[in-house]
Design a protein around this nucleic acid. Structure first.
Lengths: 276, 276
DNA sequence: CTGCATTTAGAATAAAAATTCCACATTGAC
DNA sequence: GTCAATGTGGAATTTTTATTCTAAATGCAG
């Protein structure tokens, strides 16, 4: 029984099990059937619990694993777990792969690959995370107001500045808050509960953004926030917030997902206003 | 420590963690954040592996679990595992949900899909179009200079403003040219052939960007350009230029590819400068 | 049926994991 | 600054879990 078999990914393992099941002794066939039909159980269970539920002895599971070329049951279980893990992301491996490329390609094109890869990943996550009802609600809230104040500094500033530009083109009254000359606080002091605030901030949260949002919340101005964690100080003051996790590469976070969401909000709000 | 808390389903648990995180001691907050951000890791890992990756002691994980009303870590882990188990079972359900979405035709989520699709497409094209040698050359040119002037208005301004921010963080001398107070022309008049210009412009080309670039070209200042066509007025004055075609949706062009290229240039230039 | 090889059950053992405990550190009230 | 209360790190302990081993059972060729 050589160990040169033992696939590391679930699809290959499943194929192997099905193929080998036919020529295995009785109890091992039983395990094979059980494993293919209850992969979740195999992924999460213990040797004892699976043995019980598949109606075999614990040792049979170990023998089964070894018959397939694995070192023991735990080894085989890893593959079953990877199936559940990979569904979402598996990016360390891909990053490693990217590093591998480094040798042939130039340093800069490696970076380009990395950054666009991170962006693609971010976009994929975005689709999964954003709830359409919440999105709808945010659009309505923003469209119902008068002036939309756009608050975002540092890394988030490109986003708000884009929104300001697009809103301008689309005829939506807005005010871009920037820190030039420390005027931020004054700019926003004109805001009333009829207005709306769109605040964007990611770790490490810019203190100006946070304090601005807090002040606005006290005055009863509705805040829509885009941030990266439920623990963000923005989440607690916002009337509604979106969580966006941007993939990062070499410590630089993508902005692709945030930008897509920002464009969506911008266009949707403009269209909503037109209809009224 | 009453046990009347301790939710059995993941959604409730997540909500509880988020709520309680604020009033928990330091290390427990740390675990809370980690758990919310890495639910897969918590589902699959062992106390030891999770502790390592969350940078706490194993015992902290147990204390955390108990603080939430669970008997121990294993008890809490069960709930994290249920999330992955359910996801597989809910597969059909989710598909149904998706169909539902289509029917109610949430306008905003259609937009979101459209914009993120466009972004993904742009990124795919980017990888094909950019030549690594040219990229390398652009990096070298920019890194060799003194001050890098970043020129981009309107739709391109978010890009240059991001670069300016990132260059600042990375210690690369740069000057962001914006149109505030019409100072653009003056700002750039200080530039010498030792400096570099990075100009970004897409149709319809902002006239200020073009004229600025032309003036700089006359003074012999090397220009690296990012634009969308060989016929762009930027292409003819630049010493080296990249063509980027951004996919668009409803007339709004993505910026994902441009941004990825911008990040690449930024980081690559900073690294190059460090080496010298 | 007899003898040999393979398979199996179940207990024994080894390994790994979770949990507890306690000394030390930190925080906040006075 | 001192004290008490609370929180923390790390080792010790307990529990759970995987693996190995052996005797018995089963199947199969002759």
């Amino acid at each position: 029984m050589t160990t040169d078999l033992a696939p590391r990914d679930f699809a290959a393992l499943k194929a192997l099990i099905i193929e080998r099941a036919a020529v295995m002794p009785k109890r091992l066939t039983q395990v094979a059937t059980y494993a293919v039909e209850n992969p979740d159980e195999v992924a999460f269970g213990t040797v004892a619990s699976i043995a019980l539920s598949a109606d075999v002895q614990p040792s049979t599971l170990v023998r089964f694993s070894q018959a397939l070329g694995y070192q023991g049951f735990s080894d085989l279980q890893d593959v079953f777990r990877s199936r559940l893990r990979d569904r979402v992301l598996n990016y360390d491996e891909r990053l490693e792969q990217l590093r591998g490329h480094a040798r042939d390609g130039s340093k800069a094109s490696l970076l380009l690959d990395g950054f666009s890869d991170a962006a693609t990943r971010s976009l994929a996550m975005l689709k999964e995370k954003i709830d359409s009802q919440q999105l709808e609600k945010a659009v309505k809230t923003l469209a119902d107001g008068e002036t939309i104040y756009l608050v975002g500094l540092r890394r988030s500033f490109p986003i708000t500045s884009y929104m300001s530009y697009a809103f301008g083109k689309l005829g939506v009254k807005n005010m871009l808050i920037d820190a030039v000359g420390g005027l931020a606080a004054e700019d926003i002091s004109f805001a009333t509960p009829k207005d709306r605030i769109l605040a964007i901030s990611f770790t490490p949260y810019a203190s100006e953004t946070i304090s601005l949002a807090q002040r606005a919340a006290v005055h009863g101005i509705p805040i829509i926030a885009i941030t990266d964690s439920p623990f963000s100080p923005l989440a607690s003051v916002a009337s509604l917030w979106f969580e966006i996790q941007e993939a990062n590469f070499e410590g630089f976070r993508s902005m692709a997902a945030t930008l897509s969401l920002a464009m969506t909000l911008t266009v949707a709000v403009a269209e909503q206003r037109k209809q009224v």
